[in-house]
């Protein structure tokens, strides 16, 4: 038990904070603690969770990526165009096209980072500008509204009418999100590749001495994030029922904040899928709750910012200082 607490300190702390917020909101509003609202939360958080678990893989491998959100916009636009050419298509075809395009864009980053030894933040800020600039240039900022029918139709996987007559629904994005989460979890915790990614992020020199293929690590990490970004892009297009070139602009920093809030470390070697999801959920539960409480939508962004700032400040004052009984003889490495 104590070991579990020590190795999952961030996740437990987040869970505790979320629990406190949930209890508070259940008393403060009568809408919050309902199945409908919970499902709603999942539906709206899906895109960000897919982004976040993708980014997690890059963070674990010791990199950072600024370009993934605009890459998702590029993928969205290209996929919609390609689907227009081939005419029709379906979810499987759409996901394969979007995933493949995403991998390709991610590999551009990996190629720049590994091939020319460009630091990931420099490389991805550059590709951020390239992706977004070219997208806006070639599209002229024009949105696509006539998407294939299957992409704009809501797919309800589970529904139930509640006592008050509202409907609680789980939609397709949640299923896609669950698959992405499971796949990422399996990759990083159950495969040798995943463990090599952790080791590479933790101690690159040590990993090199073990004969880990450094180039492969970069391509796997950024390729995986690319794939997740591509999928998230398609799902966002489905959710919004349209493809707007700059819809995801700026999303990268929100996702980064959520992922790091969930315990992923800038610099590599640390982070979990669970933490990532909790990080995203903390932000969306807070927004959702404030919304239900009738707080002005302009105010709750500010409150979310303040909560993240406080959380980061507190988590750096170290959980061990707040909970002294957990204190271990920790030697700086």
């Amino acid at each position: 038990m104590r070991r579990f607490v020590r190795s999952h300190a961030t996740e437990l702390a987040l869970l505790a904070v979320i629990a406190v917020i949930c209890v508070f909101l259940s008393f403060a509003t009568d809408r919050f603690f309902t199945l409908g609202n919970a499902f709603d939360l999942l539906n709206t958080s899906s895109v960000n969770i897919i982004f976040a678990v993708g980014l997690l893989v890059v963070l674990i491998a010791g990199g950072i990526d600024i370009s993934f959100a605009v890459a998702a916009s590029v993928v969205q636009y290209l996929t919609a165009t390609v689907l227009g050419w081939v005419g029709g298509g379906n979810w499987i075809v759409g996901l394969i096209i979007a995933g493949a395009l995403g991998v390709a864009l991610g590999c551009i980053n990996a190629f720049l980072i590994h091939g020319f030894r460009i630091i990931s933040i420099v490389a991805t800020i550059s590709t951020f500008n390239i992706f977004f600039g070219l997208l806006m240039f070639f599209t002229g900022g024009v949105s696509i509204y006539n998407l294939p029918d299957w992409l704009t139709t809501r797919v309800v996987l589970f529904e139930r009418e509640m006592a008050d007559g509202t409907w609680a629904e789980i939609t397709l994005p949640v299923l896609i999100m669950a698959i992405c989460v499971f796949a990422t979890w399996a990759l990083i915790t159950r495969t040798t590749t995943g463990r090599q990614l952790y080791a590479f992020g933790d101690n690159p020199e040590g990993a090199r001495r073990f004969g880990i293929n450094i180039g492969a690590m970069q391509f796997i990490a950024f390729g995986w994030l690319g794939m997740m970004a591509g999928i998230a892009g398609l799902v966002q297009g489905h959710y919004a029922q349209e493809v707007v070139p700059n819809a995801l602009y700026g999303r990268e920093l929100d996702v980064l904040a959520a992922a790091v809030l969930g315990g992923a470390r800038l610099g590599g070697g640390k982070g979990s899928v669970l933490g990532c999801i909790l990080g995203v959920l903390l932000v969306s539960i807070t927004q959702n709750g404030l919304n239900l409480m009738g707080v002005s939508p302009f105010a709750f962004k500010m409150i979310v910012g303040a909560i993240i700032l406080a959380a980061i400040t507190l988590s750096n004052t170290s959980i061990e200082r707040l909970l002294p009984f957990l204190k271990s003889r920790r030697v700086p490495s």
Binding site: Y198, D202, N203, G206, A207, F210, G269
Partner: peptide
């Protein structure tokens, strides 16, 4: 001397 270990694992 630097051990080449992985502290987070």
């Amino acid at each position: 001397q630097d051990l080449a270990l992985f502290p987070e694992m």
